[in-house]
Design a protein around this nucleic acid. Structure first.
Length: 194
DNA sequence: ACCGGGATGTTCT
DNA sequence: GAACATCCCGGTG
């Protein structure tokens, strides 16, 4: 296992549907902690009624239409931040929602930022939970993962891709609920749900 | 275990 | 005014 390597532009410059399963087992790095990605969902553009970009770019979603390797961060339900990795070439809409990570570094600080979590497995097993645990929010909108802007990036630490990731429909949608664009690490206790 | 509802504010119709 | 890529809590079985 070599030194951790930052994911590059070529990795992200494909459709989210291609990138998403390959993001499993990669490591999300922030100044506030790190976690292994164990659950993701792909969101495409015009073909995907579940995507925020389905009806074209808006001030909120323009990051998803921009260059790959940026962070699309959005605010939802009046309370929660969620984070996506932007994929594909500029002009296309494609992004991968980070739904769950396994804490690796900084778990004590994550406990402090998630005081309601009774068990460690509840710290980061949801898209808004992991953003709270790692303090990802408004300030991180559009940041460049390729340059580790604000200290945030995704690295490959050599663990390797999953041979057989579990694949299901996405969670929490009405439109596009039939598309099977969710992947997770089988048997991981850190996944949001089975 | 499952289920229902409240919190909370931005975005879009 | 409705919907929302969510989370948390309190009910019941």
């Amino acid at each position: 296992m070599g030194r951790p390597r930052r994911l590059d532009r070529a990795f992200y410059a494909r459709t989210a549907t291609e990138v998403a399963p390959e993001l499993l087992n990669k490591v999300l790095v922030t100044p506030n902690g790190t976690g292994r990605i164990v659950e993701v969902e792909a969101y495409e553009g015009a073909d995907d009624p579940g995507s925020h970009g389905f009806r074209g770019p808006t001030p909120r979603t323009e990051v998803m239409f921009g260059p790959p390797g940026r962070l699309y961060v959005y605010f939802t339900y009046g309370m929660h931040w969620c984070a996506n990795v932007v994929c594909a070439e500029p002009g296309q809409c494609s992004a991968v929602l980070l739904r769950a990570v396994e804490p690796l570094v900084g778990i004590e600080a994550m406990r402090a930022r998630r005081p309601r979590a009774q068990r460690d497995r509840d710290l980061t097993n949801g898209p808004a939970k992991l953003c709270a645990a790692l303090d990802i929010g408004e300030a991180d909108k559009g940041l460049n993962l390729l340059r580790a802007e604000r200290g945030i990036t995704v690295v490959d630490d050599g663990v390797g891709a999953l041979k057989r990731p579990e694949r299901t429909t996405r969670i929490g949608l009405s439109a596009g609920a039939d598309l099977r664009l969710r992947w997770y690490v089988p048997d991981s206790p850190w996944v949001s749900r089975r």
